[in-house]
Design a protein around this nucleic acid. Sequence first.
RNA 1: GGGCGCGUAGCUCAGUUGGUCAGAGCACUACGUUGACAUCGUAGGGGUCACAAGUUCGAAUCUUGUCGCGCCCACCA
Length: 860
Amino acid sequence: MKAFPKRYKPKDAEAACMGRWADDDAFRWDEAAPAGDDYVIDTPPPTVSGTLHVGHVYSYTQADIMARYMRMSGRNVLYPIGWDDNGLPTERLVEKVKKVRGGTMAREEFVALCREVIPDYEQQFRDLFTRLALSVDWSREYQTISDESRTVSQLSFIDLYRKGLLERRLEPTLWDPADRTAIAQAEVEETEREGKLNYIPFEIEGGGLEPAVIATTRPELIGACGGLMIHPEHPRAAELIGKRAISPLYSVPVEIYAEDTVDPEKGTGIVMCCTFGDVTDIQWFRTHKLPLRLVIDQAGKMKDALDIGSEDWPSLNADEAQATIEALAGLKAAKAKEAILELLQARGLILKQEATHQVVPIAERSGAPLEIIVTPQWFIRTLDFRDQILAKGREITWRPEYMRQRFESWVEGLKWDWSISRQRHFGVPLPVWYSMREGEEGKILVADPARLPVDPTVDLPEGYAEDEVERERDVMDTWATSSVTPQLVTRTISDELGLDQAAHERLFPMSLRPQAHEIIRTWAFYTIVKALHHQNDVPWRDIAISGWCLAGDGQKMSKSKGNVIDPIKLLDDYGSDVVRYWTGTSRLGHDTVLSQNTLQQGKRLVTKLWNAVKLAHMALEQAEIAPVSPKADIEAGIITHPLDQWLLGRLSDTVAKAGEAFENYEYANALRVTEDFFWRTYCDNYLEIVKRRSRFEGAPDDEQRSALHTLYHASDAMIRLFAPFMPYVTDTLHDLLNAGEDESAPTVHRRGSWPDRTVQAEAGLFESEGEAFVAVLSAARKVKSELQVSMKAPVARLTVTAKAESLADLIGDTAHDLQAVTSSEAVELGKAPEDAPNAMSADEAITVTLKMALPSDDEA
RNA sequence: GGGCGCGUAGCUCAGUUGGUCAGAGCACUACGUUGACAUCGUAGGGGUCACAAGUUCGAAUCUUGUCGCGCCCACCA
């Protein structure tokens, strides 16, 4: 056995283990093993956006804890890792680092900058994850922008296109005017602000009627008005419906329609419908076949010129309309609003203004208020598939189960198909061109799957000359690629399209998707959609949703609140094992505060585990024993002592409970039962009981041998039980306990090294005896505590008084231990002596009386 | 507006199917240890389990309602 260092040095252990695991290639998936043993994890590729936060530590560690258990329990774990290094988040990082604006640069130039910046930030993640001891298979590292990922991503595109599930459509689209790109519904966030509801009159054509007054928060869209909507029950409905109203400032006549979707209580009960202010406008636009009148451009500014005065867009006062257009031209929406309000005010056309609390949709990446404009975009059909998507969601096991609700309410609330095209630079190109050949103008030319990846801005479709095609310049949204992370690992999209059909057949669907809850509506949702569309299957059987890490004050960490904790500093301060312990104490789905208490507890546990194994090691290194297994050693008549068998029974029980918890992804429960056994049963009681029997004087050889074997098995098993949580200290201890002087033991984290439960049959053996012994011991301690003497204070005679006769055997069989642990010269079962201090056990079934030894003359 | 989660000792949290479920750690008090333990141990104080009503022989645990916190979805003219 190796010499046991007095203290545990986390930094040294971490360095040593990292090296050893890399050398051993300890976490590589074994392709040769039977497919039935596979356990495949769909690891989240972190977004390369420049920040490491404690949330990464938290959720990735929780996934790793489960992965380590699965591996130790015998599964052949495939745990890939990748980096999501394209799309808007990465573009923003590059813009920040390089102080450039992607939108104003040539694509080639900007992409070159991206490729230059990314590696450093990926390395940060690599370092963090290595240090955290994520047991990923580094040979499976991928990037979502690599050639292979682009190929698979484009295969996904082609498959969906061929199936009619992906379409190019010219229609109203959610638009981010700051980043000047289409976005998807999932990228919409909300912000609150105080706004003004303006009451504005529209004259009624023909005269004789009072104007129709509408209320709007977006007066700058009056020019885009294509009709007024009024509820059929509205008091003025009868007189207005079918009439035409004249828009102020533009003098454009618009029809007035009955619409029962109008809320008569809101505003005036009469609404102007613009193209487009919100989703309702689109609905009304379609229902009533209103004219399309776009006044805002892709930058979110008022257009310089409108076709007002033409046949399709008539005005009763074209000069006034033209003047209004010129007054607003080039202004951003917010400025245009101020300007048009002034124009209206000057004409006395603002009848009333009300302050109103608004919730405004914004783009999550840029924070800019959204517009809805009309541009050609590529959409994956989702609205028609809501039922199937929900059905697939129900085939998946959600942990915790209630997280499924979030998924379902998202799917039920879908209003848009999934737009995947982005007018940006750094992403996977859409693999299409548009023909300009005579007779087939506009025909969509999709890339040949055999020639991927393609970049249509560089490559040409087979058989077409440069001047025969219009090149597609859009790229895919980053989610369009990360929604096929399982397929990136199998390198195959479907039965027809892919690079490795055999791998796909074997590994897909995967076993587990671990992820955080804030990306249910994106990553989980999109991945499910893709698996449905590609193969009518689920992407994985289980999904485990982690919660959020909150700051010590219980609030979400954010820069503005100044409560952000740097994960590197956290690891520096406590070591990976302690930080991992903290993540292991909180359950899936639960947000947790970063509590100093829990970190301290973890630190104590690491120290205690180290010392407990050290104690065993001290006894074991002097002994010539060859332990086999708890069961074998019991059967061989080596482990004979009732208390040793009791301990192993309890241990076996703990292994069973922890394993059961792990199987349900309740790792926090596994940790609790393990910790509870370790601290109370093992350290506080068992170790105290066998301390002397194992090492010191007075114990018969066979009793000592029994103790030594038990110490070995218990230490070994506890190291394994804690291994998923605290990989460094456990692997270090495993080596100290199992390796010879000049060799090293195979890692405790290897496949199949979860402690066996072969003592299970004997669990319960000596259970009541063990509990009774502990009760006697506790009562004896209580007496000493009440006497305010040392636990080691010598006792002349310890008397156990119990109703049950059955204790006689126990006291006889365990007399050596009872004497040793209570420092008693003699122990007996019988009537309690008078006038001696005593205490009762918790259940009051046993009374222990201590006749203390007289202090010797020296001490007196 | 709809939904979900949470509200248990000063703090952070456990409490599976209703009956040793009133718990753990930290903090606090007293004492003891420093030959496994930059400590550790023993003992102790501390909670009407948010509130109310109900079901039950019995409820932290089930039902309904109320209040508070957080989140998701929707609305947002």
